[in-house]
Design a protein around this nucleic acid. Structure first.
Lengths: 345, 345
DNA sequence: TTGAAAGCGATACCAG
DNA sequence: CTGGTATCGCTTTCAA
């Protein structure tokens, strides 16, 4: 009974009959060590099941940057694609990315707390109510509430809506409905109204449906719109998931897409290409979003606080990353949607 | 010029005119501290932009468990759903989950190395070639190569295939093709052959297609099958993504699903419910997979090495987690697929 | 080629 | 209520 607890480098040293520095040399493939010694040390480490303590290593070497990603759910393909890009972008910088699928439940705090103790900054969407100061720099992505976060990746949905509607008009549609999400008219919805007004296209309260942001919501929305008996030759949806739900319901109801009704979504998700017909959409490049988000994190981390004195990130240089900040306010980067025309409109 | 580097607790102590222990008390909301003192310390910390060093905290408190998740790509909905469940399961135990989207590229090692320095164990699918000893306990999930990893979550695809084929036969199908993936016949494919043989159903080399594991692969597969001019009233696909691709191509080719050809996938992805008709599939519960994987990690971490002596995980007890190990070999947990019958078959 | 000593930054246990 | 002191486990000089 010599080592009832987790073996440390000292245990290995003792076992191998060397000093702890020699153990470090052996285990980290450093130079200036006799092969025989190295072998002996490696064997001892193996025997004891030694594994270096990460915290101790980090303490002395600099821990490198680790950020947390907050998403509602990775089952939502929008977040999955975003997470994919962020993971790659983070890896490219040598950063770690801790995933937190906060879910739609009420136990957000429980999900969050284990995260906060582990990250240098947070990226993503913070729960509506939780304007709470999380304690670490927070970069919000496409948050409807502009006041949230220390920096923001802003998506110009107005531009996206205009591109989508311009496409519909150009292809001869005039009675364009909108499937919106959330209790209040969204930015996208307001842009939709503005566009119709400018273009002299018909609008009434009947032109809009407001549903939950999900596939089922899309189904419900289409059912409502079709049931209203209004003129309808095109639908703009708040996002692709809703659009796909709407298409599904239209198919069920015997409406042909795009012959009878054109459908346009927003996001540009992969899944839009899996359905038949393929979805026309105002896409945003999530690679760009991810890069922008990490640039903002970087700015927050290096600028805000004089941090990272001894950190040795492995990812090589990434430039000063023009913060794209606004003079007095919170740093912000803008991303522009672009139209991807496919079969549905 | 007093503090050109990152401020430490000592700087705060000096600034506030107290000892460092008092700073700790103030900043961690501990008892036994005068409100006035606390305020002064908090103000000092604020002023200096102090943020505690995580590594140092971890060193003394015990770092808690952090595991890494390896996936080919989160844009593959299978991995996205798996990651979602693993994230939740990890959070429930108070563990951190670092995401690594290794991608299909060749720079896997570059993607991996930043990860390995941060995790206690790895979960997921390791690149085919990289049987490399990653240096940390590794739990492989549904890996076709059984020799990979220190423990395995095993999915009984044979049972899934039988369930799927039994359903097809029960609904009157007799000419059943298979869309397989990978260079060699998969386990699923072998089970398919065996089932056909047992059931006395026709089979020929023409009954099988082997394609890349992607939506486009599914499209190509269906095109090939339809082009062969063989009898065909049902198709079993290696997974849902392939199945959806196949359905898409069939629709394009004017084949009705399921009237002309029934289609069955495997996995039970959400996306299977978005397409029309909805996909019938041999589903696996990814919540179960995630739980099994974390149980195995736990077993590896606590059993294999006498680790985690002082770790204070926040997630409460999770039982000894019956390892479900095999006597002499690597621990293994098995998950059974079950049939979800929907519109496509 | 190897060993001794000095931190890294924070918490915890005891005194006062 | 507040302050000393001893770790925590490892890497990094600097000598030998």
């Amino acid at each position: 009974m010599t080592t009832p607890r987790t073996p440390t480098i000292l245990d290995v040293a003792r076992e191998a009959g060397v000093s702890r520095q020699t153990v470090t040399r052996a285990l980290n493939d450093m130079a200036d060590i006799a092969p025989a010694t190295r072998e002996r040390v490696v064997a001892a480490a193996q025997l004891l099941g030694y594994r270096p303590n990460r915290a101790a290593q980090s303490l002395v070497k600099g821990s490198g940057t680790t950020i947390g990603l907050l998403v509602e759910s990775l089952r939502n393909p929008y977040y999955a694609e975003l997470a994919s890009e962020l993971s790659r972008a983070a890896a490219a910088r040598g950063w770690g990315l801790i995933l937190c699928d906060v879910g739609y439940g009420t136990d957000r705090d429980a999900r969050l707390s284990p995260l906060l103790r582990r990250v240098d900054a947070l990226v993503g969407c913070l729960p509506a109510g939780a304007t709470a100061d999380v304690g670490v720099p927070f970069v919000s992505i496409d948050n409807p509430d502009e006041t949230v976060g220390d920096a923001t990746v802003w998506i110009d949905h107005e531009a996206g809506v205009r591109a989508a509607l311009a496409h519909l008009v150009a292809t001869g549609r005039r009675s364009i409905a909108m499937i919106d999400s959330g209790p209040e008219p969204s930015t996208r919805c307001l842009a939709y109204r503005a566009f119709l007004a400018e273009a002299g296209l018909p609008w009434s309260e009947q032109s809009e449906v407001r549903v939950e942001e999900s596939h089922d919501g899309g189904i419900a929305a289409a059912a409502q719109l079709l049931g209203r008996g209004i003129a309808l030759d095109a639908v703009l949806a708040f996002n692709d998931v809703l659009a796909i739900g709407a298409m599904k319901e239209m198919a069920r109801a015997g409406k042909r897409v795009p012959e009878d009704v054109a459908v346009v979504g927003m996001d540009g998700l992969d899944v839009g290409a899996l359905v038949t017909p393929e979805l026309t959409t105002a896409a945003t490049d999530r690679g760009v979003i991810a890069a922008a988000a990490l640039d903002l994190v970087d700015a927050l981390l290096t600028g805000d606080r004089p941090r990272a004195s001894r950190e040795r990130d492995t990812g090589g240089p990434h430039g000063a990353a023009a913060p794209g900040a606004e003079a007095g306010g919170r740093p912000r980067r803008t991303v522009e949607p672009y139209l991807v025309a496919r079969g549905s409109a």
